[in-house]
């Protein structure tokens, strides 16, 4: 499997898309820190941007790459290699490449310009989202045979988690305004990895506003060890379940 990771990683790193992605992230993060005198605000803006860009690029890139590497997979599937290892290898190669891009594009600027705990957790949040959306993209690529359809599914998933889901939450909030919804909200935030990452981040940066009112329960829940542990656990679930399911499907797929 190591060799497959190696070869797909080498292949991806030669890809211009990943270079462009690195450059984009680097330009965004450096210019944010240059333009913004207040580093906390810069981290906030960077969070906003990375919550949008990172999942989007991760899912589209992975879907397209998986379809494009159909040849690679076809070539190797006839070789004496376990099938699941093949997909694991390609998947790990993809997320390694994306994480390298993320480290150079966001991690390094943060390390140099804002080496704080909030900087670190911004990086970790983006990394977690990269893995989650790569997993989801791999799943949609394995499930759909048609390239356009697969990319469509990935885009839809991204759109759903970024916009539609929050819209639904807002709707629920207003429909049920008379009921105590804090616990429900905590539950709902678990069902969306982007929300989960965002809230985890906010609790570090905007504690004041979060605690302003509501906050007590949010803070109590996410702030204590149990809540933080649960957040990490749920995030890990979001990373692993889609890819495990994708591998299962891939094992039974006719190529």
């Amino acid at each position: 499997m190591k060799k497959i990771i190696k070869y797909s990683l080498l292949d991806i790193l030669r890809n211009r898309v990943i270079l462009a992605y690195t450059a984009l992230l680097a330009v965004v993060s450096i210019s944010l820190f240059m333009m913004e005198d207040n580093p906390v605000k810069a981290v906030m803006s960077l969070l906003n941007i990375s919550l949008l860009i990172v999942p989007l690029v991760s899912s589209i890139f992975c879907t397209i790459y998986l379809y494009n590497s159909a040849e690679f997979i076809e070539l190797l599937v006839a070789q004496p290699i376990r099938r699941s290892r093949l997909l694991w290898g390609v998947y790990l190669g993809m997320i390694t490449a994306l994480l390298i891009a993320l480290s150079l594009g966001i991690g390094l600027p943060l390390l140099l310009l804002q080496p704080t705990l909030s900087g670190l957790s911004l990086f970790l949040t983006s990394a977690a989202l990269t893995i989650v959306f790569s997993s989801l993209a791999t799943l949609s690529a394995v499930l759909t045979r048609d390239k356009a359809k697969g990319i469509g599914v990935s885009l839809l998933l991204w759109f759903y988690f970024t916009f539609i889901y929050d819209g639904i939450v807002l709707l629920v909030l207003f429909q049920m305004a008379d009921y105590p919804l804090e616990t429900t909200m905590i539950g709902m935030s678990m069902l969306n990895p982007i929300d989960l990452g965002r809230i985890g981040m906010l609790l570090q940066l905007d504690i004041s506003a979060m605690m302003g009112l509501t906050g007590a329960l949010f803070q109590d829940f996410f702030g204590n060890g149990f809540g933080a542990g649960l957040v990490i656990l749920v995030m890990l679930g979001w990373m692993t379940f889609p890819i495990l399911f994708a591998i299962r499907r891939f094992n039974n797929k006719d190529l």
């Binding site: 292949d11 040849e71 070539l75």
Partner: peptide, 13 residues
């Protein structure tokens, strides 16, 4: 087994 497919496709790069 050695296999030679009908249409040979390889990683482009």
């Amino acid at each position: 087994i050695g296999y030679m497919p009908q249409i040979s496709r390889f990683p482009d790069n």
